[in-house]
Amino acid sequence: MKALAPRTLDEALLQLTQTPDLRPLAGCTDLMVSEPEDRRDWSGVLDLRGISELRGIEWRGETLEIGAVTAFSEIRDSPEVRQSFPALAEAASRIGGWQIQNRASLGGNMANASPAGDSLPVLLVLDAQVVLVGPEGKRSVPYRDFHLGYRQTALGPGEIIGWVQLPKPPVGATQFFRKVGTREAQAISKVVVALLASVSDGQISDYRLAAGSVAETPVRLTEVEESIVGRALKPEVADLAGHLAAQAVRPIDDVRSTAEYRRFALAQVVRRMTLQLVR
């Protein structure tokens, strides 16, 4: 097995050009949950954790850039994230437990492409951009076009996630995050919801809603958003938002929960978040 641990991005890209089917490694909190035989069958691995360019949290103008291998513990504790993207800090603090947060990375959560990834609905409502790097160079895609299907992403052969860029949220916007899991920690979500909303002149002027574990991928609930934006801020709007959110998703029964409950919990959580705007 080829096992490479480059120190620079250039080195990594060269290795990926030569061997595009190298499996990139970051925190390994999902990848190592595999049968040992299977891990030995992989043709090669490329450890990204040693590449300092892919690690860290930094403002670049109006955009906060987070390196793909940055661990959730860094995101959770980052003053920049807590200040401007509290929903992301909250999501980071609800992933696994302390040990998992020390290893699991934002890029890994994205690349793993699970419908239950806790940080992913937050990226959707923050209108995150993903910078991919590969043998063909760099390209930037909106996160909403990155996660294509169940465990499917827009990553091409030999391509890796470089950075996530979060545009500064509108002034006065409120962010919400709620994970409804199987227990208080070390849980996989039954439903995970993120909302970013702004109110001006008594009207909801911005309303960005996303949910995980309710479809094959985390979804931005655009129909709900369109119905809510522009409405006067009244408690009934919260009921409507909850109702529409439940209508907009087609969750399934699985080992963690039921379709009925997911729809119910989504509606209730969306309603509650929206009510909090009112109060």
């Binding site: 641990a5 490694l25 190592m32 949950v33 891990r39 450890d47 302390w98 290893r103």
Partner: peptide, 13 residues
């Protein structure tokens, strides 16, 4: 210095 789960860390890291 950080608590981690040794069952999830490959030798290469």
């Amino acid at each position: 210095g950080e608590p981690v789960l040794s069952c999830l860390i490959p030798r290469i890291q």
